[in-house]
């Protein structure tokens, strides 16, 4: 695969819901292997941006290119099949199924079949391996319990495992840490950092700025659906636009840092 050129390119993407401008003329590009953070107040259009990129919502205008090919408005399963995985802010899992069976679903996709090639190991084992990585100890009962009976922090990580099972080239995390305890965040963050170091491109939407700023290369700030700033974490925090639009954040950062 040609590693040259941006892995993701978003051009003047917009979406209106009735009268609401959820996303307005947002453009950005993403290099292979980059770690991008997206921040913005609640309702600023972050989730909608993810939905637009992953095909769950059709854009009103603008276009999205993934690995050089246009994917604007394509069906979600096609986009996922190209190697663009996501997690959901409100986790969407199969609550009646055992946790590990949730991970088997993406393992049944044509993409994973192709990537695993001829050697066709047990899907159960592959699923348990991925879950073990996410902190579901393989020798405990946790991976075999129905997903619905697991605590929230586990559900978030299960969603992450489900996304990773797709063997993505670009991973979008929509507020993965919301609802996780401090210790869960502390144990999950290194996993994500490691994935990025292994070459996975990651977009992370997050409200916990301290953790976010420690790991990302670049930050994109949204407000009222528009991109108001972009740059390294320190550049962004200096920017007046961000300060005025995003009042209270610095307090937040200091509180968390202190």
């Amino acid at each position: 695969m040609a590693a040259q050129g941006p892995i993701l390119e978003v051009r003047r993407l917009s979406k209106n819901f009735g009268g609401v401008r959820a996303v307005h003329e947002v453009s950005f590009t993403l290099r292979r292997g980059e770690f991008l953070g997206v921040i913005g107040p609640n309702g600023s259009g972050k989730t909608t941006l993810v939905n637009l990129i992953t095909g769950f919502v059709k854009p009103s205008s603008g276009s999205v290119f993934f690995k050089g090919a246009e994917i604007t408005g394509k069906a979600p399963y096609k986009i996922a099949g190209l190697g663009l995985a996501r997690t959901f802010q409100m986790v969407r899992l199969f609550y009646n199924l055992p946790a590990y069976k949730n991970v088997i679903i993406p393992l049944c996709s044509p993409r994973v079949k192709r990537l695993r090639g001829g050697k066709y190991g047990e899907k159960d084992d592959a699923a348990i391996d991925i879950l073990d990585d996410m902190g579901f100890e393989r020798d405990s009962f946790v991976p075999y319990k129905p997903a619905g009976s697991l605590p929230h922090g586990y559900l978030k990580r299960l969603d992450l495992a489900r996304a990773l099972a797709l063997r993505p080239e670009l991973l979008i995390l929509d507020e993965l840490f919301s609802g996780m305890s401090m210790s869960e965040v502390a144990s999950t963050l290194p996993i994500i950092e490691r994935l990025n170091q292994e070459g996975l491109t990651i977009v992370m939407i997050e409200h916990r700025l301290k953790e976010l700023f420690r790991v990302v290369d670049r930050v994109l700030v949204l407000n009222f659906g528009m991109k108001i700033a972009e740059g390294t974490p320190s550049e962004v925090m200096e920017s007046d636009a961000v300060k005025s639009a995003y009042l209270g954040i610095e307090v937040d950062v200091e509180a968390q840092a202190g």
């Binding site: 069906a75 996922a80 995985a85 959901f88 969407r92 049944c108 044509p110 996304a163």
Partner: peptide
């Protein structure tokens, strides 16, 4: 159970 979650797993529902 959830067709959207299946789609996000790259499966043509």
């Amino acid at each position: 159970d959830d067709d959207r979650a299946v789609m996000s797993g790259g499966i043509n529902i």
